[in-house]
Design a protein around this nucleic acid. Structure first.
Lengths: 340, 340
DNA sequence: AAGATCTGCTTAAACGTTTAAACAAACAAA
DNA sequence: TTTGTTTGTTTAAACGTTTAAGCAGATCTT
């Protein structure tokens, strides 16, 4: 690593003070002569000066960096958001450091520590379960942050999300309207509110249509043993022949696993089983009966999250804002029963 | 943002010097009394001291941060690598800042500047086309970096990749062995070497088997107009009926677009058309004829990249190393012609 | 008893910026 | 002419660390 050019080098090179150089290079040159300014700028390019943002940050207390905490950056849902966040942040001169919590309290804590030690100006977080305390700690330290996708009942914080209850309700309603009665749902085995509300929406839609939700219809799978538990759960309801008319998946990762089973068991969609999922996936288009899904605008989520949190930074303290983004049902073959 | 606790605060609190506190907290305590050390450590936890890594970095000249530059973090290929890189880096106490170059020379340059200004210790780069100069600049500045996935003929640098020629060759060979003669290929419209070598491998395999590659069989699509150009290119060869027996896609993003067309045109795979792609995708499993693909281990790529670049940091200057990771053909339905 | 060594701690400089305050010279106002 | 203001620049401190060097006091050597 070659010796880097600092403001000091420019100053020495021109025989002036570092202060002057700094003023010019930051355009805070209220009272610098035009000639001097020109000379300094020229020397800067000549010597190929690059500001050391670390030094700047130490002095200013701002890093112009956002920390992004998601469950798993390799999950397309989150990586897509990451890209939006990146672009939106860049517009305001911010850089993004990311980390995957792996839905673990400990990793989440470690991540936050690492990001905060690096003095990120704010955090964008898709929080893992049982991390309320960590969020409260952020609030106590007055670190601006915004939650995305997930949220907690007893945490008042900036949050960008959809109305999960309503989205799930309409999805299930659609299943009912297309002639399904025995409707199963697969959800993560978690108490997280976004999932809980999807389940509530599912149950409410059933009840409101005179269907009594059966406990056995609700398949739970844990994040860390998704494949096994999803497989097992699906088999119970689908093998040898489906005992339900339809399946509603609470996330796309669950749907991917679930549909793998549907393929393996050679169940005909939608005739033997209607299918609906949350979120998008290329895979949904490639299935012979393209999957109907609840679309949430990741663009809206990412953009609003950045806006919100940059706002919080700018005007110091603000009452937490909650942004609800739209979610819509994209209806396709997987919910079109032939006999209708 | 509440006042943060610094080493100075601990020192004042105990009436000792900051040096002593620093020595203890860094376990460089060769000559500190046990009682004092204990007192300091206790005060540190009591006051909830968190080291300011920015300050540490300024002093040490190391940020323990890696910059990751990919074409698009929302592309599963890259986001998967990002996750591996993240995990592998964390093992050595490193954090990752990422950015998407969007296959643009300018964005790539801007990204590098941004990352270097933030004093990242090294870069992991999937370089965009025509960025050779940028890489040479890095070499001149002696910034450690490692290329992944892509590489240049005239740049001697650390690099982790597969043997693209050979991988493509075997893929096409497989198509030939399963009875295909007129074999088309879709590739990005780029001179990038990894793509060029895949094309060479494709042509060589044809020639070696007595098939003369037709120029019209090679469909080119640009990154920025992928959808239109891929659509158009596919239609020329497939509509109204396929004039080729098989299609070989140079990347999974190309395959996704291509297969969309195959679905739209209702072409039967593999009977009317065999299909093979590079890289994995959930979508490949969901197609009625699961897609045969060339698998490269993203784990190997990510892990080796981090190892290589951390090695470069540690032992200052090293001759560039090139790591070839394995690639294997995963054979499935999309290349199993019925009449064989 | 005098020097040498060890022990436990402090001093102070450095990393590369920013920025309030000071200052000298030039100019304007009275 | 004196006083005041403006202009262009410098000084110096600060941000939170690390770390070489220094320095007393205690302990060991001979």
């Amino acid at each position: 690593m070659e010796k880097k050019v600092s403001i000091k080098d420019i100053a020495r090179h021109l025989g002036v003070s570092t202060a002057l150089v700094s003023y010019v290079l930051n355009n805070k040159a209220g009272r610098v002569s035009v000639e001097m300014a020109e000379k300094i700028r020229q020397a800067a390019t000549e010597l190929n000066y690059r500001p050391n943002l670390i030094a700047r940050s130490l002095q200013s207390g701002k890093t112009n960096t956002l920390g992004l905490i998601v469950a798993d950056i390799s999950n397309p849902f989150f990586s897509h958001i990451a890209r939006i966040v990146e672009d939106e942040a860049k517009k305001s001169g911010y850089t993004v450091i990311f980390g995957s919590s792996d839905e673990s309290v400990e990793k989440s804590q470690a991540l936050m520590d690492a990001l905060l030690n690096r003095q990120v100006d704010a955090l964008i977080i898709a929080p893992a379960e049982f991390t309320e305390e960590q969020l409260r700690a952020l609030q106590k330290k007055k670190i601006p942050f915004v939650l995305i996708d997930r949220y907690f009942k007893d945490i008042q914080a900036n949050c960008v999300r959809i109305d999960n209850y309503r989205a799930a309700y309409s999805a299930v309603e659609h299943l009912i309207n297309t002639g399904n009665k025995r409707i199963a749902m697969m959800a993560y085995d978690t108490g997280m509110r976004h999932i809980a509300e999807r389940i509530e929406g599912y149950k409410a839609a059933l009840k409101d249509n005179g269907i009594t939700p059966q406990e056995s219809w609700l398949v739970r799978a844990s994040y860390h043993h998704l494949e096994e538990e999803a497989t097992l759960g699906m088999q119970k309801l689908l093998s040898p022949k489906p005992v339900v008319d339809a399946f509603f998946f609470a996330t796309n990762s669950l749907a991917i696993q679930g549909i793998r089973q549907i393929i393996r068991l050679n169940i005909k969609v939608p005739d033997e089983l209607s299918v609906i999922s949350f979120d998008e996936a290329d895979a949904f288009d490639f299935f012979y009966a393209p999957i109907t899904y609840v679309r949430q605008s990741l663009e809206d989520i990412g953009r609003n999250a950045v806006q919100l949190v940059l706002g919080s930074i700018a005007r110091q303290e603000t009452a937490p804002r909650e942004v609800l983004v739209d979610a819509g049902l994209i209806i396709r073959e997987s919910t079109k029963k032939q006999h209708l």
